[in-house]
Design a protein around this nucleic acid. Sequence first.
DNA 1: ATGTCATTTTGTCCTGGACAAAAGTAGAAT
DNA 2: ATTCTACTTTTGTCCAGGACAAAATGACAT
Lengths: 319, 319
Amino acid sequence: MNPNPFERHQDIAAVARDTGLGKDTLRVWERRYGFPAPLRDEAGERLYPNEQVMRLRLVKRLIDQGFRPGTLLALDAAALQQRLDALAGKVGAGATATGDGGARPAGNAGVEMAERLVPLLRERAAESLRAALAQQLAREGLRGFVMDTVPAMNRRIGEAWTAGEIEVFEEHLYTELLQNQLRAAIHALPPAPGRPRVLLTTLKGEEHQLGLLMAEALLAAEGADCISLGPQTPVVDIVIAVARTAPQIVALSFSAAYSWRKARDGLLELRAALPSDVELWAGGGVIAARGAQIRGIVCFGRIDEVPGAVAEWRGRQAG
Amino acid sequence: MNPNPFERHQDIAAVARDTGLGKDTLRVWERRYGFPAPLRDEAGERLYPNEQVMRLRLVKRLIDQGFRPGTLLALDAAALQQRLDALAGKVGAGATATGDGGARPAGNAGVEMAERLVPLLRERAAESLRAALAQQLAREGLRGFVMDTVPAMNRRIGEAWTAGEIEVFEEHLYTELLQNQLRAAIHALPPAPGRPRVLLTTLKGEEHQLGLLMAEALLAAEGADCISLGPQTPVVDIVIAVARTAPQIVALSFSAAYSWRKARDGLLELRAALPSDVELWAGGGVIAARGAQIRGIVCFGRIDEVPGAVAEWRGRQAG
DNA sequence: ATGTCATTTTGTCCTGGACAAAAGTAGAAT
DNA sequence: ATTCTACTTTTGTCCAGGACAAAATGACAT
């Protein structure tokens, strides 16, 4: 649309907004690794060519999957893309930072829906998008929607952002609308204050809510009695909440970028602080990636293991 | 609750998050004006005492109302608070940045609702808050809700943030829930694709959506046919949208922090670009503050002038 | 009131050094 | 074979203080 190469250059603030990397980080990478290597304007201020911004987006995406900058900044775009593809193709990789739910081969419905997203976002057609999500959810039912369509959509959104097809703003809009749909659907379920009662949250430092919400939706769809504390609850507050609401299960969600050490330490600390008859369930990116087995904690490798786990829990209680 | 003064110190990143000011800005203020004057830890890093953070919050609030740093940073907390009070007391001050809708004396219902907000936010009781908003809206009706309760709530939230009673995160949560309620209410109105047809948006650089949404709600409640483009639409895109949707009125919303020059220039540019039979309405912070009169543009001093203006428009069309 | 131009004010950018926090690694211990 | 501890490397953020672009103001003419 605008082939003028000069129009493509972005200043450091724009790149920081666009990629989610800090300005300081961009500058120190340049100093240390020689990339990015922006041009300069007359005043000596950095101007990032579009091509470098694309590459930065690939880097950011891989970092969010747990890779480290030092291993990535020397690679060219093709090599980076290759790693991303490898990651996407890996079966059983588990839910990623954006909650792709593991490399479950998505059904046709999910993929078709995912393909419709990007055009709708670019048109700023918030209302149409909302309607489309609602319709798809109604058609598939909450369970199928969360296990098939949502992961497919998240994958597509991630790709689109990496490719520069959509902007951060539009990605936020998508997340917003999807979360509203999920919340509404959970809220609209027939009120069956059944068992198990599950307390959901994420640990301090984990901002991603989507995985949490997906878990809540699945649990609620199975007839569990869900109480969500929202994200970023300190361990102390979780303990207090457990004392007050007496759940049988506490479920924690983690993104792929969350540090494994912090996750494990947090889980063990919580395990020690909670009554031993309260089960502790953990799922999401890091947990799945490590195929983790922690004593006293139930770890999920894929989001679609949730319904089965609920059934199993019920069996255990009945027996 | 925690009287230990050492616990109260925050590092520069926390203060930046908390106040919404940039780290660079905090440092350059210190250099230029001598305030803030943070302590230092062993490593020489800034530690801001709580008292200074409070004062920074007051400063930020006044800047958002259009004041300039140079005039504020020499003042102590009491003097800053005084200016804020003066502002709040000023009748006809118009909708502020947070959309307080002018100093309309809020009805009892509005004030009572506003008082319930802070406790609910601090408990992270998102669901209760959502329910409370929905109930209040149902009780008052959309029009009364937008003209009385929402301004009262916004004022209370602003105060609470300034006083450090709530955090940014909680303020966002409030805005989010309120916007959802308004959108749902607009959407739920009996489908009366009446007249006038109104296109709503904000100019590029204006991020505040709440005022826009309040205007849309009022217009929709009056039976107008509203089309919202969302915030930050460049003039060119507005012109294109007008050509496609053929509205009789284009409505623009501005916060108090928006530059008066940019607002006026943008409005005039738009006026020149649009067919002369399309009316141009403008309202919100800056517009109201200047008691502005611009030729060819209808300026609103207070949000509750909107219903009357619609009635008047209809009279003009009928006659 | 509105436009123009010079003068301030204000926020952001720059460099390059430093270091705290996080993550990886290795060896010992359960 | 995992878990713990101590050591090393990586990585992001902080600092100082100079510079300057962008925005706002003020003066003056229309």
